[in-house]
Amino acid sequence: MTGHGVPLELYQLVAALLFTIGLVGVLVRRSALVIFMSIELMLNAVNLSFVAFSRLHGQMDGQIFVFFVMSVAAAEVAVGLAILVAIFRNRETASVDDVHLLKG
């Protein structure tokens, strides 16, 4: 119990649902941009989970974690979008199935 009526399990349920939706987005969408957004969605689902647990235990460490997750997300978006722009400039595409450089 979170102490004010809404059980913790419900927050976890919402977090799980959002995470799964994000996962589907990453796995099935072609657009690299949307895949990035889906990743943000997954990160936010985890953030929700962190904050809920933080409230449950009455400790702020969970919120601090959210803070760090946001910093990492910002860094990731900056670099990821830069890569995306670079790829698009050279190949005129933003679809992940048009690019297969990630192999030895």
């Binding site: 990453v26 992940v96 199935d97 297969h100 450089l101 990630l102 030895g104």
Partner: peptide
């Protein structure tokens, strides 16, 4: 190793 990022994600 296909090189397709989504296969890796899968």
């Amino acid at each position: 190793q296909t090189g397709y990022v989504q296969v890796y994600a899968l």
